[in-house]
């Protein structure tokens, strides 16, 4: 068991013929992902690393029974690509694309909720379950089968930490990069909820960074509902502090956002905060004793 993906996950790649789409499709295939089709409007009939390309999601599903999608299409077209996938019946959509407008993301989120679909991202490295599948761009060689769940807002920092876990022999049950955007399709709290239910996850590493209030909300959730050990890491402790804005943003996000606020929230929820990535395995080993 793992979260979100299993052996029955049949994946399509939207934007498979683009530079990134092609490159990462090959890596996903190498990882063992069951990619059943690619979709690029106007490129139907093409073939990328043995994967057939269709003009639209509907015909790809009809032919292959796909139930998940990884989206590499440019930001301007991300919303229509995701709507197309949801309307065709896809239930899990990973948006790798960065710079997706926040208004588009709100629309996508509402459309996903109304249709019982889940979005991960945008601007994220995707999800990976070693031994099962990868829907995204996390480097294959960093991943190793294990019992640690990883949730992160960051990209390359996730790879760094996953690599550290793998090298220390711990390995991962599932890695979820929720993305660093203002409106993520899946939040820290959503991901924690999933890991809480997962028998194959013994502990969770939560990788946050400065800005927003997602880490504080995660801490609140952990305090009240999450029983497994959690190790936290916050990037940006030495970044210059933000300023008070004197507008609505200030009242909505309160005092949260600084590294200090996030670390304090984590600690009050019983989450041990690692001062650098290489300390995470040691703390985990201690917690799992």
């Amino acid at each position: 068991m793992s979260i979100l993906i299993d052996k029955r996950t049949k994946v399509i790649i939207q934007g498979i013929t683009g530079h990134q789409g092609t490159f990462h499709s090959e890596a996903m295939l190498d990882f063992g992902t069951n990619i059943v089709a690619g979709v690029t409007p106007g490129k139907g009939g093409a073939n990328v690393y043995g994967v057939d390309v269709y003009n639209d999601v509907k015909s790809a599903i009809k032919k292959t029974g796909a139930n998940a999608s990884v989206v590499f299409v440019p930001a301007q077209y991300a919303k229509s690509a995701v709507f197309e996938a949801i309307d065709a019946g896809i239930k899990l959509i990973v948006i790798i694309t960065e710079h997706v407008p926040s208004h588009d993301m709100i629309d996508m989120l509402i459309h996903a909720r109304t249709n019982g679909a889940r979005i991960i991202g945008p601007n994220c490295p995707g999800i990976a379950t070693p031994g099962i599948a990868k829907l995204g761009i996390i480097p294959n060689q960093t991943l190793k089968k294990g019992k640690i769940g990883v949730i992160s807002r960051s990209g390359t920092l996730t790879y760094e930490i996953v690599n550290t876990l793998s090298k220390a022999g711990l390995g991962e049950s599932t890695v979820i990069g929720i993305g660093g955007d203002k409106i993520p399709g899946t939040t820290f709290v959503d991901a924690l909820g999933l890991f809480g239910e997962d028998k194959d996850t013994d502990a969770v590493v939560l990788i946050g960074e400065i800005g927003g209030g997602a880490e504080e909300e995660a801490a609140e959730f952990i305090k009240n509902y999450f029983k497994k050990p959690v190790v936290g890491f916050i990037a940006g402790v030495y970044a210059p502090p933000g300023k008070r804005m004197g507008h609505a943003g200030a009242i909505i996000s309160g005092n949260s956002g600084t590294a200090q606020s996030k670390i304090a929230a984590f600690e009050s929820a019983g989450v041990t905060v690692a001062s650098s990535p290489d300390k995470i395995p040691v703390i985990l080993n201690r917690a799992l004793l």
Binding site: G155, T158, E160, E209, A235, G236, V237, Y238, A239, S276
Partner: peptide, 15 residues
């Protein structure tokens, strides 16, 4: 490369 890794590196240098 990447905002998170860049920030984490700045933190580690400072530490």
């Amino acid at each position: 490369n990447g905002a998170g890794l860049t920030m984490a590196t700045i933190d580690m240098i400072a530490e």
